[in-house]
Design a protein around this nucleic acid. Sequence first.
DNA 1: TTGAAAGGAGACCGATCTGTCTATTTGCGA
DNA 2: TCGCAAATAGACAGATCGGTCTCCTTTCAA
Lengths: 192, 192
Amino acid sequence: MSEKRQVLIETAFKLFYQKGVHALGINEILAETGIAKKTLYNHFASKNELISAVVAYRDKCFCDWLEGELNKAAPGIARINALFDALDDWFNDRAEVLLPFRGCFFINVSGEFSDPADPVHQQCMKHKDNIAALIKKQVGTLGIDVDQVERLTDSLCLLKEGAIVLAHVQGDKRAALKAKKSAEVMVRSVRK
Amino acid sequence: MSEKRQVLIETAFKLFYQKGVHALGINEILAETGIAKKTLYNHFASKNELISAVVAYRDKCFCDWLEGELNKAAPGIARINALFDALDDWFNDRAEVLLPFRGCFFINVSGEFSDPADPVHQQCMKHKDNIAALIKKQVGTLGIDVDQVERLTDSLCLLKEGAIVLAHVQGDKRAALKAKKSAEVMVRSVRK
DNA sequence: TTGAAAGGAGACCGATCTGTCTATTTGCGA
DNA sequence: TCGCAAATAGACAGATCGGTCTCCTTTCAA
C-alpha cells in the first residue's frame, strides 16, 4: 500500500464528504494533493474504484472509532450510554478523527447511488450491518433474553440513524442526547 | 402556473430521485419531456432554481400525503399507529403518489448539499420541521402533558428518520413495523 | 388579421468531466 | 553509475455540462 494511494483516498474522502461524490471531479482531488493524474489512474482503474476504496476506508475508520469509544465503557448499560455519547461527540465535532460533521457518509452516498443493486450502495449497506452487529454485541452484555437482544438492537439502530438525520438535516446538535433518553426508555422496557 | 413548468418539475423530481441531483444533467430532463431547453430556461433561471422548485414540490406532495394518511385515523393513539403504517406503505411501494421508494428525497438532497447554509439544504431542513410539526399535532391529541408532548414528538421523529434510513440504506422492508413497536414503548412510557 | 407570449430546434459557448498517453524526471537499490 | 519502478507535467480525446442565443413556429386574445 503506497503512501500516494493513501493520500488520494484520504483527500478524496474529505472532498467527497464536503461536496458530494458526483459534484466533485477528480481534477480537484489532484489539485488538492498535487498528485499527477497518471498516478491516480495507476492506483485506481476509474473514479468509481476510487469511490469504492474511499467508502471502505471510511467504513474502517468509523467502525474503529466507534468500537474504541464503546470499549472505553464497562460492559452493560454503560456501553449503551457510550454509544449515544459517542454520537454526541461526533455531531458536535469532538471526534477529530471523523472530520467535521456533515451527516453520515454512508447515508449521503446511498442517496447518490440510490439503486440498492449498485455496488457502492451495497458497500454502504454492509457498513450499516457492521455497525448493527457492533451494537448487538454491546446489547448482548446486558444479560437479557435473546429475543429481547434482537428487539433492543433494532430500537437502538433506529434511534442512532434517526439522531444522525436530525443532527444533519435539521442541524439539531442535541439529537444524540434526545436519542439517549429514548434509548433509556427502550432499555428499561426490555429489562422489566 | 403553466403545464410545461409542472411537467418539468415532476419529471425532474422523478429523475433526481432515481439518479441523484448532481449525477443528472438537465439535458436528460429535456430528452425525457421533449421540452426545449429555452423553455426550461424561460421557467427557471438556472438548474439550482429548478432543484429548489422540485424540493418545494416534493415537500408539498409528501406533507399532503402524510397528512391525508394521518387524518384517516381517529385522533389519539390511532394516529401514532397510522404514522408508522403510512411509512410501511411508503417503504413497500404501496403509496403510489410518492413513486417507488428510494429513500427520503430530503435526506438524499441534504447529502448532496451538505453545507447547512446552502439554500437547498435549508429547504430540506424546513421540510423536516414541517413534518415534525405535523407529528407533534397528532401527539397533542393523546391528552398528555405539554412537556411529554415535546418528548414523545422527539422520540417519534427519531424513530421515523431511523426507519427511513434502515429501509433505504439497509433495504429493511420491515423497518417501519420495527419502529412502530418501539413507538408503542415510547407512548406507554409517557402515559403511565 | 395582427401582435404578443409561449414555445421549439438546434447551433453555439466556455468549462469541465473522465480517462489515455508521451516524454521526462525522480527515487532507490545493486 | 545503471536500471527499474514510481511518479510527473501536461497535452490530448471525446463527451457532457449548464447556459445563451437566433430564427422560426404555434397559440391565443383583441
